[in-house]
Design a protein around this nucleic acid. Sequence first.
DNA 1: AAAAAAC
Length: 603
Amino acid sequence: MPTSWADSVSAAENLAAAAPPKSAYVPPHLRNRPASTDPPAQASYAGAAASGQGQSGYGGPNVGGSRWSGPRNDFQSGYGGGGGRGGGWNSRTGGWDRGREREANPFAEDDAEPFVEPENSGINFDAYEDIPVETSGDNVPPPVNTFAEIDLGEAVNQNIRRCKYVKPTPVQRHAIPIVLSGRDLMACAQTGSGKTAAFCFPIISGIMRGQFPRPPRPRVAFPLALILSPTRELSCQIHDEAKKFAYQTGVRVVVAYGGAPINQQLRELERGVHILVATPGRLVDLLERARVSLQMIRYLALDEADRMLDMGFEPQIRKIVQQMDMPPPGVRQTMLFSATFPKEIQRLALDFLSNYIFLAVGRVGSSTDLIVQRVEYVQETDKRSHLMDLLHAQRANGAHGKQALTLVFVETKKGADSLEHWLCMNGFPATAIHGDRTQQEREHALRSFKSGNTPILVATDVAARGLDIPHVAHVVNFDIPNDIDDYVHRIGRTGRAGKTGLATAFFNENNSSVARALADLMQEANQEVPAWLSRYAARSSHGGGKNRRGGNRFGGRDFRKDTSFNRGVTDYYGGGANMSSGYGASGGYAASYGGAGVTSAWD
DNA sequence: AAAAAAC
């Protein structure tokens, strides 16, 4: 076991260096890396804009009432003609980007990668092959092994190549066929496992091959798909990714979030939108102004769904999903994704789902092998000097000429401000991100951190979820969150894409309420649990309380399997699906899940 | 109790 932070890092680096490079599989976060040698995109699509006159309809910049395709079968035409003919989807690219402006190449800025490193270094590829997967629900479609098995169409296939995706990740292998088959889905998978692509690919494909009525009113946006996320930065990130997947497919992706001028967002919406990515507040605003209608929504995806349905967000989500004009479950297709899925939230989620499939994908490399978790006992008053010690060690250990990125989580916005200030005063280049900063400041902080200009970022939970920040070597839980799921999300900012990472937590009396949950979690992740923490855990846990996770090596477990849920409640299955059939786990893991909830497929 | 999310 490593004994110091510096040791942990060098051990991690050795481990990385020792891993033999393979070429076949590239996890999501190492993709898009070196400048692509793709030919200019238009070349392959030159002359493709040649279909009927209706094609300028959808999203056409200046067509008032006929933004949607004129001939109703325009989306359809050409699809099914086989990959070789290319007349179908490509023809639609002539629609909204023809003439006036060209669709910006979303792959262009991938060259600006500041961290140069050999492709594929240090990735535990084999770990991806062994990931346990659990599915439950009626008639679960079988997973696919390659992108070729799924007919996503030539335009999307080309984007997959541009993204340098060679092979679907586990969550993609399972989720894509499920969504393509039209089923609702609740998916537990770590962020960084390729979730975004898992729901974007089938949505884009579905929009390309579907037939949709033309939008009934001008000056109102009628998206076909809605993707909601809990933070503005995460919405931006999803939007950026989705743009890549939808490049030159004719499918328009627009993002809307608060803190930024609404006018530009309105203009984008007016040009037409198939997929709207949004944070809840701004979307409600747009709905109330009647600039967006949800009546044509066919796909609804909630990212970080457990956060979206928790107390803070639930009313807004209910308003958007249930009290506006969105089609009900069963008519639309609903997908919920998160790395954690507490039972109470799963129960809540029933209101939004219809006969759904539950999917749990284990983490890469048996849970958190790739993240070394340490807990240190630090009095409140000693936290700053202790942090300084860690940062000094890290600096001494200096990697690649640049200081490794360190993400420091604190509980409050005030705490973030004052810690940032203190670090800067003490010669550590730090910046901070939290909800009281302007959106400009937030985005600047994130950029500065990502680029390595400011290698220390102090953050509240605004940065805990979903954000993909490559090269974070160390997550410090300066304040330990009261909800253990938040801890899981926070440490997930490191150790991404098969890379190793370190997570250090400062524990003291104030955290005794999570001692048990933290100890259990670490134990389960094969981490060394300090004896003093175990004593805290034994002392302060009376019956477990609400902080007990349905622990296993997945982010969660289908609560429909709980006896306490099943007893006397037979009506939860959207439309009375047959409970007794179909709930066997497909992978042979069922037996492992019958017990106390801590057993896992790998025990 | 705090954080996030609209103007």
